[in-house]
Structure formats: C-alpha cells, structure tokens
Amino acid sequence: MSGIALSRLAQERKAWRKDHPFGFVAVPTKNPDGTMNLMNWECAIPGKKGTPWEGGLFKLRMLFKDDYPSSPPKCKFEPPLFHPNVYPSGTVCLSILEEDKDWRPAITIKQILLGIQELLNEPNIQDPAQAEAYTIYCQNRVEYEKRVRAQAKKFAPS
C-alpha cells in the first residue's frame, strides 16, 4: 500500500471527524483483525431537504486505489439507486470521479460526498449510466419523482 495514499486518507479521516456536513457519514471499514482499512470507507449521503430525495439516507462505498490521490476513489451505492447517473452496479457516474475528466488530487472526501448529493437531485442527462431511470427522467418527470420519493422512504434511517 502506498504511504502517500494512507497518509492522505488519515488526514481526510481526521478532517472529517473534526468537521463534516450534518447527516453525512464517512467511516473507514475494519479489517478482520480489527485494524482500520483506510482504503475502503462506508459512507452515507442524506437526501437534500426540499427535494424528492429528502428523508432518505443512501449508503455508498468509497474504494481507494494505491495511487490515490492521483486517481479518484470508486464510489458505489449499496444497494444501487434508481438514478440516471448511477450504473446498474451502483457505481456513480460523475465527472469529478473520473481521472480523465474533472478529478483533481486536491478534491476531498467531503467535496465528493457533497457533489454526489447535488447530483442526486440534478442528474447530468449528457452522461446517462442507467437506461430506465434516464428514460423516465426525460419522458415523465412526475413518475420519476414518485419513484425517487418511494426510494427515499425505503432508505429512511430507522
């Protein structure tokens, strides 16, 4: 494992614990031996107030490669969400998460999670990743928002 990646992720964890947006979660997972795995984080993004996503808490896994922060983490909703920019596998399609697009090593975990929260309610229809959600979003916004509200209710924190 890269010392650069681990040191950056340790800084990220410290900064997150000191200050993070209300309702968001970002925690490194534990290895079988109980030690912390900084390369694999369990996160959760709350649906934004005043949107059909409100009330939901959407679980996301963030996986970092050894060359982080040169390369972005892979962000994957578990379980996958109904959304035009979420692949059926759950992987998020967002330009700041793509090395050859808008990724920059200075982007923080907090910025990534806030960017994904923004994307939930403002899909990028130029870059669809899920045919069904994309089609319904474009053709029947009322039905799309109904499905999103049902999903938010399903993923409401207990």
Rank of each mutant, 00 (worst) to 15 (best):
S2T: 11
S2Y: 12
L6P: 07
L6F: 10
S7C: 10
R8E: 14
R8T: 08
L9S: 00
A10S: 10
Q11E: 11
E12Y: 01
K14M: 05
W16R: 03
K18N: 03
K18W: 02
D19W: 06
D19A: 12
D19S: 04
F22C: 01
F22S: 04
F24M: 10
F24H: 05
A26H: 00
P28K: 06
P28V: 06
T29L: 15
T29N: 15
T29K: 14
K30Q: 07
K30S: 11
K30P: 09
N31C: 12
N31I: 09
D33S: 02
T35D: 02
M36K: 07
M36F: 06
N37V: 13
N37H: 12
L38M: 06
L38Q: 00
M39S: 05
N40G: 04
W41A: 08
A44N: 08
I45M: 13
I45W: 07
I45F: 07
P46E: 07
K49Y: 09
P52M: 10
G55P: 10
G55V: 07
L57P: 05
L57Y: 07
F58A: 06
K59T: 12
K59V: 12
K59I: 09
L60W: 04
L60T: 09
L60N: 03
R61Y: 09
R61D: 11
R61N: 14
M62E: 02
M62T: 08
F64V: 11
K65D: 04
D66E: 12
S71I: 08
S71V: 05
P73E: 02
K74Q: 14
K74S: 15
K76N: 15
F77W: 01
F77H: 01
E78T: 10
E78C: 07
P79W: 14
L81A: 06
L81P: 05
F82I: 04
F82N: 03
N85V: 06
V86L: 04
Y87R: 01
Y87G: 03
P88D: 15
P88A: 14
P88I: 15
P88T: 15
P88F: 09
S89V: 06
G90L: 01
G90W: 05
V92A: 10
V92E: 01
C93Y: 00
L94S: 08
L94T: 03
I96C: 03
I96M: 08
L97R: 02
E98R: 07
E99A: 12
D100Y: 08
D100I: 15
K101G: 09
W103V: 00
W103M: 05
R104S: 10
R104P: 00
P105S: 09
P105D: 01
I107V: 14
I107G: 12
T108M: 14
T108F: 15
K110W: 04
L113R: 07
L113C: 11
G115S: 01
G115E: 02
Q117G: 12
Q117S: 11
Q117D: 08
N121T: 12
E122R: 10
E122C: 13
E122W: 09
P123E: 02
P123K: 01
N124I: 04
I125R: 06
Q126Y: 10
Q126G: 11
Q126S: 13
D127Y: 12
D127Q: 00
D127I: 00
P128H: 02
A129S: 05
A129F: 00
Q130H: 09
A131W: 00
A131V: 11
A131I: 04
E132A: 10
E132G: 08
A133F: 06
A133L: 07
Y134M: 09
Y137D: 02
Y137R: 03
C138I: 13
C138Q: 11
Q139C: 10
Q139S: 07
Q139R: 13
N140R: 10
N140T: 08
R141S: 09
V142A: 13
E145M: 11
V148I: 15
A150T: 11
A150P: 09
Q151K: 05
Q151R: 02
A152S: 08
K154D: 12
K154L: 12
F155M: 05
F155E: 02
A156V: 10
P157A: 12
P157N: 10
